[in-house]
Design a binder for these strands. Structure first.
Length: 426
RNA sequence: GGAGAGAUGGCUGAGUGGUCGAAAGCGCCCGCCUCGAAAGCGGGUAGGGGUGUUGAGCCCCUCGCGAGUUCAAAUCUCGCUCUCUCCGCCA
């Protein structure tokens, strides 16, 4: 959510930022609602002031056994007006709120301007895509040949975009979760969190999934819970409605969770394999920082996510997203894209965003810069560290051998109970 | 699921209709004292909004949330949420 005071005092700057994102939004309605609200409020508050003053006078008169009926009758009139104006303000504020909640964040000055992903910038590359002496198979073929991925039965028991992991496939999934958690906890200083997978609507509003993207999520009837699309939601909302101590910042959490996405707008895309599933696992990094440090922390967060791919020996590149390609709430976002041989291209495996105060304002997460200063909004950041399903796909494809087996990356062998290679059963 | 109790400021905890945004204690901040600290003493210490000579003052709202009664609600009524205790059920 954007700061209404910023919109009021600097509408041109806001318009410019929204334009860069390709958001065609008029601020004039919002600005006039804001103006109207404040003028009604002046009138309303003076009436309430009158009521408060007179009520005290009534109390005094009654205590002195004097007649107060004139004042009481007068207040009946005033109360009628207050009721009307209260309702008026409530309606205006409702409209303002709706409007504010649908405005995307403004891009940071370092974000390349552009309408779509063709304006994204490649920041750096790591690792060399391997040269194969045979035609590399897509991971779904590898997985089925090894009997570790079962797409058919996933579809039978649930539907399209659900997969069953079996044997060493399930073990690999679990190994990756543990490897990534250990790395971020032990080497990068994050605190482990295991959150609920079902959250309420307030949480979804806080991180920006609601109200605009309801169709992307699974909702549980009739209780009204939402299945989390990412651990970002419960973990960021951990500190909703809180004022944090500045000496505790930055707060760094790492959370493993399953993620659930309706993929409403992706019909027909990535229908095969593990790339786009309704349910997948992810290790997520979340930070709460001061405004002064958020961009340094953002760079560090990206490096923390990169470390996962480096240790796994998976070639990747880092992409700085253009203003038009970023998610709704991000001020700046890097994607990590891992090399997938069968696609002969890099595919997104992590997205690391600085939300600045966008989520903090929605979720009301503040901190006190100094012990007696007024609370200010924190900056929130998050990034995948990294998506597990896509990592499984990347390992199967990058580590496949001509005989159909798959080598296990060095760092994972201890997590695989010493197994060095997944082979088909005879 | 049944029965009961409760929800007040960073914390503990008073407050059952009229200067209560709220006693007291703890914590925290500033000052005095001290070489320094502790103790002691004095003062300060919620959040949001409006106005404005833009952080001086003034005003409005908030005592879990939402309605209601009243000239006036932390205090009365109703609904909801959450917490705790006991019983039942259960991974």
């Amino acid at each position: 959510m954007l700061d209404l005071k910023l919109i009021r005092s600097n509408p041109d700057r806001v318009r410019e930022g929204l334009r860069k994102r390709g958001a065609e939004v008029s601020l004039s309605e919002l600005l006039s609602l804001d103006q109207e609200r404040r003028s009604v409020l002046v009138e309303l508050e003076s009436l309430k002031n009158k009521r408060n003053t007179v009520s005290k006078e009534v109390g005094r008169l009654k205590a002195a056994k004097e007649d107060a009926s004139i004042l009481i009758n007068e207040m009946r009139q005033v109360n009628e007006e207050i009721r009307n104006l209260d309702e008026k303000v409530r309606l205006i504020e409702e409209k303002i709120g709706e409007k504010l909640l649908t405005l995307p964040n403004l891009p940071h000055e370092s974000v390349p301007e552009g309408v779509d992903d063709s304006y994204n910038l490649e920041v750096r590359r790591w690792g060399e895509p391997r040269q194969f002496s045979f035609k590399p198979l897509p991971h779904w073929d590898i997985g089925e040949n090894l009997d570790i991925l079962d797409f058919e039965r996933g579809a039978k028991i649930s539907g399209a975009r659900f997969t069953v992991l079996k044997g060493m496939g399930a073990r690999l999934e679990r190994a990756l979760v543990n490897f990534m958690l250990d790395l971020h906890i032990n080497e990068h200083g994050y605190t482990e969190v295991f959150p609920p997978y079902l959250v309420n609507a307030d949480s979804m509003l806080g991180t920006g999934q609601l109200p605009k993207f309801a169709e992307d999520m699974f909702k549980v009837d009739p209780q009204g819970y939402y299945l989390i699309p990412t651990a970002e939601v419960p973990v960021t909302n951990l500190h909703r409605e809180e004022i944090l101590k500045s000496e505790d910042l930055p707060i760094k959490y790492v959370a493993y969770s399953a993620c659930f996405r309706a993929e409403a707008g992706a019909a027909g895309r990535d229908t095969r394999g593990l790339i786009r599933q309704h349910q997948f696992n992810k290790v997520e990094l979340v930070k709460f920082t001061t405004p002064e440090t958020s961009y340094t922390e953002h760079e560090k967060l990206v490096r923390d996510a990169e470390a996962v791919l480096q240790k796994l020996g998976l070639p990747y590149r880092v992409i700085l997203l253009s203003s038009g390609d970023m998610g709704f709430g991000a001020a700046k976002c890097y994607d990590l894209e891992v090399w997938l041989p069968s696609f002969n291209m890099y595919r997104e495996i992590s997205s690391c965003s600085n939300y600045e105060s966008f989520q903090a304002r929605r979720a009301n997460i503040k901190y006190r810069p100094t012990p007696d200063a007024k609370p200010e909004f924190v900056h929130t950041l998050n990034g995948s560290g990294v998506a597990i399903g896509r990592t499984v796909a990347a390992i199967l494809e990058n580590y496949q051998e001509a005989d159909g087996s798959v080598r296990i990356p060095e760092v994972l062998i201890p997590y695989m109970g010493g197994l060095e290679r997944i082979q088909a059963k005879k």
